[in-house]
Amino acid sequence: IRCIGVSNRDFVEGMSGGTWVDVVLEHGGCVTVMAQDKPTVDIELVTTTVSNMAEVRSYCYEASISDMASDSRCPTQGEAYLDKQSDTQYVCKRTLVDRGWGNGCGLFGKGSLVTCAKFTCSKKMTGKSIQPENLEYRIMLSVHGSQHSGMIVNDTGYETDENRAKVEVTPNSPRAEATLGGFGSLGLDCEPRTGLDFSDLYYLTMNNKHWLVHKEWFHDIPLPWHAGADTGTPHWNNKEALVEFKDAHAKRQTVVVLGSQEGAVHTALAGALEAEMDGAKGKLFSGHLKCRLKMDKLRLKGVSYSLCTAAFTFTKVPAETLHGTVTVEVQYAGTDGPCKIPVQMAVDMQTLTPVGRLITANPVITESTENSKMMLELDPPFGDSYIVIGVGDKKITHHWHRSGSTIGKAFEATVRGAKRMAVLGDTAWDFGSVGGVFNSLGKGIHQIFGAAFKSLFGGMSWFSQILIGTLLVWLGLNTKNGSISLTCLALGGVMIFLSTAVSA
């Protein structure tokens, strides 16, 4: 259960009878995928790494000078000259100064003066180019299975845990398959586009800190620079940016070097996208990844198990997540596992009318040892309800109150669905055939309105939902006002479609 501690969480529900669903994975976010007769899966884009970055340009932001020398000439005696002028490691300046009897010249006039100092770069920052084909995306998957609280967001041991898996995709191999043991396998067909235009970005490294910066900004930095990788004795261009020549006297000129420019660069980098280094690879934390999940090989585990009949206890007080759902960790005293956990939410304890829904599909106890633990997640209705676990006299209950409203949740879900469709863009549509167009249209309606429909009408039977949709269509056909007619027709059509397409 990876997503319960992530604030940016998206719930995606598969269409009834569908074998695939489109998701948008982004750094700092987590996606929970639910479908009829399929286990619930949490998917998170953990890291995006980039390798084989080529150094484009380096800037010196802290330097020192040494070996200063000057040469001067009297008027009419030609130009002052130093051998160091031809050495690229030196920074030199030529000027004219007033000369006369007082400073060793027989004539009054302008004399030539040249001053040089050896330039040494102490600290530099480097910009590297990123090729999209060198990106690698690491995705962690977790099935809502027989897990306890100690396994949440624990990325170790996934090789031997059938509840978890790690997959890596690249532009050259965008397809992967996550093996989930008894739950089958989940196929991923990803489109490795981060949403960032790397043709316009460089990877900047300064003092063990890293950013993504725009090329134009990078090339306009007014500091000494050299092109390409460091060859040991780089040729620094624009050395004068960190060196200041003071007022010249008759035979000498003082040279000083400016202080470190790291603070000024940090100020200019305010708002830039931060990154990290992992050995020789860069780690990015921006952008998104679009994936199509193929769920035809994914299956529920323990459908044929019998119900657990022994007593359950709450190991922890049920807690609310950031998303309005409830996490419950229970301990089973029996030894008759594997068995299914009898769990439901009810409005009252007399009729036990089921409300809400299970995020953890078909929760089971897989071990036959005593005191096995299991964590599950529920989506309670707004208002008061009861969490009921167990059967008969051994069942345990917990009162729950959820604040908020169904309308607010439906609106929030619609906005999130619209954002998801905007990110998917043209990849969500198939114009290759008439059937493809209608299929894409259905998927689009489901992406945007599916979660809201589930919130508003999830407790009704599909037949009642179709009746309401048919009534809206009838009202649309018999209303003389054009805008009201079109609105009723659209709402009725969407409702009829979703009542037959969205899983219960």
Rank of each mutant, 00 (worst) to 15 (best):
I1Y: 03
G100W: 09
C291E: 05
A248K: 08
D98N: 11
G14D: 11
E177K: 12
D10S: 00
N134H: 07
E216F: 07
F218Q: 07
S146C: 15
T353I: 14
L322N: 06
T115Y: 07
G263D: 08
S122Y: 14
C190D: 09
G187V: 14
L352E: 10
T95K: 12
A178C: 06
N207D: 14
N439V: 11
C291I: 04
K480S: 13
A117P: 06
C92T: 03
Q447D: 03
S286D: 01
V391E: 07
V153E: 04
L472P: 09
L201A: 07
F438W: 03
L352M: 10
V6R: 00
D230H: 08
R193N: 14
N439G: 14
N163G: 14
L273Q: 13
E13G: 12
Q253Y: 10
D67K: 06
E79R: 06
A178P: 12
E136K: 08
G157M: 05
S66C: 04
S7K: 00
A272L: 06
S173M: 10
C308D: 07
K297T: 02
G390M: 10
G390C: 05
A80Q: 09
K123N: 05
L352N: 15
D296A: 14
Y202Q: 06
K394D: 03
S66G: 07
Q261N: 10
V33M: 15
A451W: 12
L188C: 06
M375Q: 00
K128V: 00
V169D: 13
P224D: 08
A272I: 08
E262W: 12
D220P: 03
S372T: 06
T369E: 00
D247N: 05
T397A: 15
K301F: 10
R420P: 10
I1H: 00
K409F: 10
G104L: 03
A451I: 08
D379Y: 03
V31F: 08
T231W: 02
H249G: 05
D10W: 08
L471G: 14
G493S: 13
G111L: 01
F218D: 09
E377N: 05
K124D: 02
K316D: 02
K409P: 00
E55V: 14
V97D: 05
E13K: 09
E177D: 12
T406Q: 12
P171F: 07
G458S: 14
F411H: 07
G28R: 04
K316W: 12
G444T: 15
N371M: 04
T366N: 02
K209E: 11
H266S: 13
G392D: 03
A35M: 07
W429R: 10
G228N: 13
R9Y: 07
G459H: 13
T88S: 15
I341L: 02
D220K: 09
F438D: 00
G182M: 09
T335G: 13
K123A: 09
C291V: 02
L141A: 04
Q344L: 09
T32M: 08
S485H: 06
W236H: 05
Y59R: 02
L258G: 02
T88D: 04
P354E: 00
T353E: 00
V256Y: 00
D200S: 14
I496M: 07
N362C: 06
T76W: 10
L322I: 14
D348K: 03
S129V: 15
T313A: 15
L491M: 13
R2M: 09
S66Y: 14
V437T: 01
S304K: 00
M125Q: 04
M421R: 03
V317S: 14
L376W: 10
L135N: 03
G104C: 04
V355W: 09
G157A: 14
A361M: 11
V423K: 11
F198R: 00
D426I: 02
T397M: 13
Q465A: 04
D83K: 01
A452R: 03
G157W: 03
W211P: 05
A250V: 11
G356L: 02
C60F: 07
T194M: 00
P192E: 04
K340S: 01
S260T: 13
H266R: 13
T353A: 15
S7D: 06
G324A: 12
A451Y: 11
M345D: 04
K283P: 00
S7E: 11
G182Q: 15
E159I: 02
G442L: 07
L135R: 04
A413F: 14
C339G: 08
P171H: 02
L289S: 07
M15K: 05
K124A: 13
A451K: 12
K294W: 08
D278N: 11
G18E: 07
K283W: 04
K283N: 14
G435E: 05
L498E: 11
D87C: 06
G111W: 01
P338K: 06
L441P: 13
T325L: 03
G356W: 07
V473T: 07
F411D: 10
A280H: 15
Q350I: 15
H288M: 12
G417N: 08
F119Q: 08
K93G: 14
W474I: 02
C30Y: 12
T487L: 06
P171R: 00
K118S: 00
V437R: 00
A268K: 12
A227Y: 03
Y158E: 01
V326R: 00
T351F: 06
L424H: 06
R420S: 05
A250N: 08
A452M: 13
C121N: 05
V213F: 08
S112R: 00
G442F: 08
M345R: 00
T120P: 00
V56F: 03
E244G: 04
L471T: 13
N163F: 08
H214Q: 09
Y305T: 02
H446R: 10
N103F: 07
H219T: 06
I396M: 14
E79G: 08
Q331A: 09
T366R: 06
E412W: 12
F453S: 11
W101L: 00
K419P: 08
G106T: 00
G390Y: 07
V21Q: 01
T156F: 03
